[in-house]
């Protein structure tokens, strides 16, 4: 598939699900299965997203399948539960919600649950440390207000969406297109940092923030620079009103390679896969795949 080829040209890629059950793990496993055998790959996950839910409901966190030679990082707890033979390369001082972070190398193919570093700084550190072992780092990227780590640390990104995010094709396309629009925000020119015509902010971009900027006459025409797309929590209406009069840039940007869809919702409702792929692809101008059909 095309995006696998594109993915191999980047040094890191995060797989982001817009909602639980949008097929993020399917997508991750698909990528891992289709990478060429010669590729040197390291895999981890960001955050503790969904962790507590899983412990409450008792549903199993999905496992991913790793091939011999792949390097992975997971918490102590999930390392002990692994279903493969692996060699420990490092036990980091850094602690995750589930103990120390263990980096291992797969010796005999099998399954493992991933729960990696919990902050953007620590995921970045781990990606750096994994460099000697891998040409490509794949990050299981939780996209949630619960996670402190941002998937935007990776060079490229694959987005998983589906019926679980919205049961109506029109709404699903609209909502997904909004996230895609945010992911595709252009990268800020670092040299102009601190320029007068620019408003720089690190934190969350909410409706109030945007309205606050729009309401001040002196801000007219100024550009807004934010950390990355995950910081935007604004309502699409407010956002679009804002972007009519202001350009927005991000300091950290991932190149979106593809969008995958899971037409089946957890309640059993199924959307028309072909129609969904076509409509979405039209709206976002990117290839869209239903991985179950591949």
């Amino acid at each position: 598939m095309d995006f696998i080829e594109a993915l191999l040209h980047t040094r890191s890629c995060s797989v982001v699900g817009l909602e639980k059950n949008t097929g993020k793990t399917v997508c991750l496993n698909y990528i891992l299965r289709h990478l060429p055998l010669t590729a040197r790959v390291a895999v981890t996950s960001i955050g503790i997203d969904g962790e507590s839910k899983d412990q409450v409901t008792g549903t199993k966190k999905p496992e991913i399948t790793l091939r011999k030679g792949m390097v992975f990082a997971t918490s102590e707890k999930h390392y002990r539960m692994r279903h493969l033979v692996s060699e420990i390369l490092d036990v980091s001082n850094e602690r995750t919600a589930l103990g120390q972070l263990v980096t291992g190398r797969v010796l005999t193919e099998g399954k493992v649950m991933l729960s990696g570093p919990g902050s953007t700084a620590s995921i970045r550190r781990w990606m750096k440390e994994a460099e000697p072992y891998a040409d490509l780092v794949i990050v299981d990227g939780a996209l949630s207000r619960m996670s402190l780590a941002s998937p935007a640390v990776s060079e490229s990104m694959v987005l998983a969406t589906g019926a679980a995010y919205s049961a109506n094709i029109d709404t699903l396309v609209k909502k997904t297109a909004y996230v895609v629009e945010l992911i595709n925000l252009p990268k800020a020119d670092e040299e102009e940092e601190g320029a007068e015509e620019r408003i720089s902010m690190d934190g969350a971009v909410t409706d109030r923030v945007l309205e606050g900027i729009m309401n001040k006459a002196e801000n007219n025409g100024k550009e807004l620079v934010i950390q990355d797309f995950t910081k935007v929590f604004a309502d699409p209406m407010v956002w679009h009103r804002f972007t009519k009069s202001h350009h927005v840039y991000v300091r950290q940007r991932s190149k979106l390679l593809a969008v995958t869809v899971n037409p089946t919702a957890p309640n059993g409702m199924v959307l028309d896969s072909d129609k969904l792929c076509e409509r979405l692809s039209e709206a976002i101008n990117l290839p869209v795949y239903d991985l179950m059909k591949q």
């Binding site: 102590e76 390392y79 002990r80 420990i88 036990v91 120390q100 263990v102």
Partner: peptide, 11 residues
């Protein structure tokens, strides 16, 4: 000791 602990001891 488990693998992680043995790793620590060796380290």
């Amino acid at each position: 000791l488990d693998d992680i602990e043995l790793f620590e001891v060796k380290h």
